[in-house]
Design a binder for these strands. Structure first.
Lengths: 205, 205
DNA sequence: TTGTTTACATACATTATTGAATGTATATTA
DNA sequence: TAATATACATTCAATAATGTATGTAAACAA
């Protein structure tokens, strides 16, 4: 097998990304060699180097496959201008993100790689900055929803949307981290919904 | 220089740990070779291997130097049974931890290494579990303080200490992560105190 | 004072990994 | 249908990293 059709080439590209996820997950990004990825994908290093210039490009591709849909969710969710429970909407949005991790193994695994199986140094530091940037966008969106909640009278009048949003943002960052690290589902994964509900209810007037 | 006194040997051991922290910080744990650490410390690989069996032992030693004092803080802080502002005490405890990072460069750098410059795979997974375990202890301590706050009537009676504690625990996990990653102090580091104060005030009756 | 251990330095053998260069059969295109 | 670009496989050259083994001079103990 020497030259594939375009479609097949795209399939092998995907196979390589999947293989990378599997090997990254068990060995960590730094310790995996291109050859290990190639073996796992059933190709040679030549194929991997054809599709990706180096390990960073491969890692970025894997990362974008799960990040981009999640970013889209942020914007989608904000479009829905008129709803009479903005506060509940915040909870829905947060839990929707957790559900995305729960329902998709490759999303979950990719997050695990990004959070605890990758070292953000040199070329990779920009990826960490991107992540921070995405967090900012989520925080902004949450703040907008809190503002609507305030006008709807759902909040305690003494609480400002900006402060509530920041608090929720930090809460959710912590939840994501602990959820991902809670591999045996003992402490966080199985009660994420309740944790979010409780967090939101603490704000309800 | 071939054989040092015991005291000097301990000094070189410390120099090696410091060197490791510097190199880990700039290159990440996986990418740093023992030789790079040795060069940074002004010794040869022989010295490093004499003091530490391998890179994991070196990393663990570096980690414990900052973790153990923080763990001690947890217990110290709980001893102080009688105080009439348990809620404020929670804020103090959280901010004290942040201050520890702020005031000690090596503590801050070690946290940065542990959080974004280390891959938790194979031999290192147990270190991640230890961290989770320490988080649990903090959460328990916070819950106890919330219970005292409840009996003191500081809380809204409809809020349970367990739920508040979990929420604070997640908030603080998120804050720690974002604080550490906020290298240019733009978003989190310079307002950590306010974030904590606001978080606590959201609970005040 | 002598023997022994310590605290390293040096040397060695082995293996892993990389990027690039080159080869090649097949899709694709004109 | 011939020319060319594609999608890989194979080979090459070079380096980097590891753990261990051995050397050694000074510290320490008796």
């Amino acid at each position: 097998m020497v030259r594939q059709t375009k479609e097949n080439a795209e399939l092998t590209r995907q196979r390589i990304i999947e293989a990378a996820r599997e090997v990254f997950l068990s060995r960590g990004v730094s310790r995996t060699s291109i050859e290990q990825v190639a073996n796992q994908a059933g190709v040679t290093r030549g194929a991997v180097y054809w599709h990706f210039s180096d390990k960073k490009a491969l890692f970025s591709a894997m990362r974008e496959q799960v990040i981009l849909p999640l970013i889209d969710r942020i914007d989608e969710n904000i479009l829905n201008e008129n709803n009479d429970d903005p506060l509940g909407k915040i909870g829905d949005f947060l839990y929707g993100t957790i559900r995305a991790l729960d329902e998709s193994a490759y999303t979950r695994q990719t997050f695990e790689i990004m959070m605890v199986k990758c070292e953000y140094v040199e070329e990779l530091t920009e990826l960490l900055e991107q992540t921070l940037c995405n967090c900012e966008r989520i925080a902004k969106k949450i703040e907008q929803l809190y503002e609507r909640a305030k006008t709807k009278g759902q909040l305690n009048p003494s609480d400002s949307p900006a402060i509530l949003a920041m608090d929720t943002h930090l809460f959710f960052s912590g939840l994501m981290h602990l959820w991902v690290k809670d591999l045996d589902s003992k402490h966080y994964r199985n009660q994420a919904a309740d944790l979010i509900t409780n967090h939101i209810n603490l704000r309800r007037k």
